[in-house]
């Protein structure tokens, strides 16, 4: 069995092994192996290519951009997604604009350990994919499975554009697979995680698993829910979403991020714009509450969508 976190480590090992242009840069990632051990033993296996950085997110990203311009393929590990805001300027103004302005690609991968876990609180739990997706010039990957964590990270490193790789901390240790995949859907294609006919749930990252539990529960009551795992939120596979809505006539978009704007709003805007006539009911969305992410597990468990709140939203959607 291999965990989601181990898949990320293996992808990085593969990338380092396959491509001499790859190096990894981040806080405590060298001999220590990273706050989550995503780079455990990599510094030992690849001397000089897994480098501890100072606590300088702006300079970490800036230097990765520079290295990429000289032909390297840096992977930057943010210790937590939340701290990437300190490097925000380099990501959105330098990396994201480079190709458009100069015609020279900027192949960097920035790993954001994202999302909530009990007890993590306001500054170690954030989901920032919508923030980065807002900026042209970035690719946003949000893997929900062990297989995708592995194959998409390899693809992120291979792509010529800056990739924000949102890996979910809640999945690091829980999620396991038999083995690593040898092939994968291309980036930009969503996956039907569970087929259904009565309603479509569109989601990504850790929420895929909450949605699958919700679908499982409703299936015992005779309702078949289709669950779509977006895999990457930019590009967003609108075609797969619309095709599903064409079958089910109902859509619930679920995200762990905050409600204002964001991925669920984008999905519904596209469905309303391009698939309004496919809808048998008003489209719905479910997000976290509009407060900072709380520390206490009691509060945290209610702040984010869960299988239970998804079930009740789906019951509304199905007019039950």
């Amino acid at each position: 069995m291999i965990t989601y976190l181990e898949a990320i480590r293996e992808a990085q090992r593969q990338a380092l092994e396959n491509d001499p242009r790859v190096y990894i840069y981040g806080q405590d990632i060298g001999a220590f192996g990273g706050a989550f051990k995503a780079t455990k033993n990599l510094a030992q296996s690849f001397p000089g290519r897994v480098l501890d950085s100072p606590i300088s997110e702006d300079a970490m990203v800036g230097s990765a951009i520079g290295a990429s311009l000289q032909g390297m393929r840096p992977i930057v590990e943010m210790q937590f997604a939340d701290f990437s805001t300190v490097g925000f300027n380099q990501i959105v103004n330098q990396a994201a604009t480079m190709f458009w302005r100069t015609g020279v690609p900027c192949p960097i991968t920035i790993r954001l350990p994202s999302g909530g876990t009990p007890g993590s609180g306001p500054f170690h739990s954030q989901n920032l994919e919508a923030l980065y997706a807002h900026y042209p010039g970035l690719i946003l990957m949000t893997p929900a499975t062990v297989e995708d964590a592995y194959s998409m990270l390899l693809e992120a490193v291979a792509l010529d554009d800056p990739v924000i790789f949102c890996e979910h901390k809640y999945l690091y240790f829980h999620l396991k697979a038999e083995s690593l995949p040898s092939e994968a859907l291309p980036v930009g294609r969503a996956r039907i995680a569970r087929a259904g006919r009565d309603a479509t749930v569109v989601t990504y990252s850790a929420m895929v698993h909450e949605a699958l539990s919700a679908a499982e529960e409703l299936s015992t009551q005779g309702w078949e829910i289709e669950v779509i795992d977006l895999r990457s939120i930019k590009p967003l596979d609108t075609d797969t979403v619309l095709a599903s809505v064409a079958r089910t006539g109902r859509i619930l978009a679920v995200g762990e991020a905050w409600p204002w704007g964001g991925v669920t709003a984008e999905v519904l805007a596209r469905v309303a714009t391009d698939g309004f006539n496919l809808l048998d009911a008003p489209p719905m969305r479910l997000n976290s509450k509009d407060t900072p992410v709380p520390f206490h597990p009691n509060l945290w468990g209610t702040h984010r969508p869960t299988a239970q709140t998804i079930v009740s939203a789906l019951r509304d959607l199905l007019r039950l």
């Binding site: 702006d58 300079a59 311009l69 390297m72």
Partner: peptide, 13 residues
């Protein structure tokens, strides 16, 4: 913002 980009180019070298 340009200084760390130069740093990275020198790291690449």
């Amino acid at each position: 913002a340009m200084i760390s980009v130069v740093n990275g180019m020198l790291m690449a070298h």
